[in-house]
Amino acid sequence: MRRWRGIIVPLVVLLVAEITFRATVTMSDSLAPPSRAVGALLGALADGTLLANTARTLAGMLGGLAIGGIAGLAAGIAIGFSETLRRASFLTIELLRPIPSVALLPLSLLIFGFGYSMEIAVVAFATFWPALILTQNAVAQIEPRLIEVARLMGLSRLETAWKIVLPAAAPRLMTALRLAAGLALVVAVTAEIVSNPQGLGHDLMIAQETLRPERMFGVLLWVGLFGWGKNAALLRLERWMFSHRGEVDTSVAA
C-alpha cells in the first residue's frame, strides 16, 4: 500500500486542475487542462514529430556526453596518476570549472552555427568537469596495493589504467555516468530552448510561441518522463552491475 502513496498526489493535482479548468476557463492561450495536454502528447507521439525531436535531443545529449565524458575520464585518470600534473592543473581547473555552461551558448553558436555541433560542444563542456572530478576521486580511492601490484608486474601506465584502474573504479564511474547523463539532458534541452532550433527544447518554445498550450504541457510532461525514465534505467543498471560490491558512495557527486 505504501508504494502507491506516491502516485496519489500527482493524480489529485491533475484532477483538481482538470475540474477547475473546465469549470472556469473556456479559452486560453497559456493554459490547458491535463486531459488535453495528454491528448496532445499522445497525438504528437502518434504522428512521429515528438519522437523525431526526442531523437535529436538524444543525439545532442549523447554526442556531448561521449566527448565530454571520455575527455574527462582520460584527464581524470592522468591527473589521478600524476601528483605533478595534479598540482600543476588544480588552479586552472578550479578557475574554469565554475563557468556556467550556458555562458558558452552564444560562443558555441558563433563558432558552429545552428545544428548538432553547437549543442554537442556545450554539453561536452558541461559534462567534462564532473567526469574529470569524479574520475579523479575514483582513481584516488583505489587501493594503493593494486597499483603496487601493477608496478611489480611491470605493467605500462596504459595497461595499468586499462587493467587495474578502470575495473577497480567502475562502480564510482557508473555513478559519475548517471550524474553526467542527467546534466547532459538538462544542458541539451536548455541549448535548444535558448538558441538551437531543434529537438524537444525547441518543440516547447514553438508550442508556446504558436499559442498551443496543450502541446507545450504535453511536451513538458514528456521531457519530465524522459528524464525520470533515463535516470531510473541507469540507476537500475548500476545496481544490477555492482550489486555484489555493496553501496556506491555518491556523496562526492552531490
Binding site: G182, L185, V186, V189, T190, I193, V194, L200, G201, L204, M205, A207, Q208, M216, L220, V223, G224, G227, W228, N231
Partner: peptide
C-alpha cells in the same frame, strides 16, 4: 528531474 529551463516557455 525536469530540466528547470523547460519551464521557461
Amino acid at each position: 528531474s525536469l530540466p528547470a529551463s523547460a519551464v521557461i516557455p
